[in-house]
Simulated assay, not measured.
Amino acid sequence: MANWIIAASRDWLMPLVELMHKKLLQEKYIHADETTVQVMNEEGRKNTTDSYMWVYSTGQHCNYSIRIFEYQPGRSGKYPQEFLKGFNEYLHTDAYSGYNKIPGITRCLCWTHLRRNFVDALPKDVHSPEATIPSQGIAFCNKLFEIEKTLENLSMEQRKLEHLKQEKPV
């Protein structure tokens, strides 16, 4: 039965994934992120060695809803560089420097990742954390998220104009 799954994946699912990958690279915006995964009994590696699952996804307003997960043994920027070869539009990521290896893209950084850093910076022993500088950063991010919700149903061009008008002052 395992051989059937392997053969079906190779013969039927991989061509579909390859088509999805081709369509993904034709989009104007791609989101990417990576997270650690533990792989047991991987040849030549200890069970405690970090491996990575990379995810590449279209955005809410793209032509196709695509999400592709790709396993890699490391976190080097060579992995997204290879996966995104030929893509030269907007890449939405966290601030991980490995994405800088991808030529011809415009990096768009993630406010949610930035907000997480402000949350981590909140002092744990303060009675009024709302009066701290990290809480001000959190408030700015929350305001941007509120504005973004109001722009969901606009066209791409209208959203861009409203972003500049409403978010720039924040």
Results as ranks from 00 to 15, higher is better:
Thr36Lys: 05
Lys22Gly: 00
Asp11Ser: 11
Leu24Asn: 02
Glu18Met: 09
Gln81Thr: 15
Glu43Trp: 12
Gly44Leu: 04
Gly104Cys: 09
Glu18Ala: 13
Ala121Ile: 11
His113Asn: 12
Ser97Glu: 05
His92Ala: 05
Tyr56Ala: 09
Asp94Ser: 04
Arg115Met: 07
Thr49Ala: 15
Ile6Glu: 01
Leu19Lys: 08
Thr49Arg: 15
Tyr71Met: 04
Thr48Ser: 14
Asn88His: 14
Arg75Lys: 10
Cys62Ala: 15
Glu27Thr: 13
Ser9Met: 10
Lys101Ile: 02
Trp12Thr: 10
Glu42Tyr: 10
Arg116Ile: 09
Glu27Ala: 12
Ala7Gly: 08
Tyr79Ile: 07
Gly77Ala: 00
Phe87Val: 09
Glu43Asn: 10
Met53Thr: 04
Val119Thr: 15
His92Ser: 01
Tyr99Phe: 04
Arg107Asp: 08
Glu43Ser: 14
Leu91Lys: 04
Thr58Gly: 07
Glu82Gly: 10
Glu70Met: 13
Glu34Ala: 03
Ser9Glu: 06
Tyr64His: 15
Gly86Gln: 08
Gln26Tyr: 00
Lys46Asn: 15
Glu42Ser: 13
Lys23Pro: 04
Ser76Cys: 04
Ile68Cys: 10
Pro80Ser: 09
Thr48Gln: 06
Ser97Trp: 00
Val55Asp: 00
Ser97His: 01
Glu82Arg: 13
Leu16Ser: 07
Arg75Ser: 05
Tyr79Pro: 01
Lys101His: 08
Ile66Thr: 03
Ala121Lys: 14
Glu82Thr: 15
Cys108Phe: 03
Phe83Glu: 03
Asp50Pro: 12
Ala7Cys: 11
Lys23Trp: 11
Met20Thr: 02
His31Trp: 05
Val39Thr: 01
Gly74Arg: 04
Cys62Leu: 06
Glu43Gly: 13
Thr48Arg: 09
Ile68Lys: 11
Ile66Lys: 06
Leu25Ser: 06
Ile68Phe: 07
Val119Phe: 13
Val55Ile: 14
Ile105His: 11
Gln26Asp: 06
Ala121Pro: 15
Leu16Arg: 11
Thr112Cys: 08
Phe87Trp: 08
Glu82Ala: 15
Leu84Arg: 14
Val37Asn: 00
Ala7Phe: 13
Cys110Trp: 03
Asn63Lys: 15
Ser57Asp: 01
Pro103Arg: 07
Ile102Asp: 10
Ser51Leu: 02
Glu18Pro: 04
Ile6His: 03
Asp120Cys: 05
Arg107His: 15
Glu89Arg: 12
Lys78Leu: 05
Pro80Ala: 08
Met53Val: 07
Val37Trp: 00
Val55Cys: 08
Lys85Met: 10
Ile6Thr: 04
Lys101Met: 11
Met40Arg: 11
Tyr71Val: 03
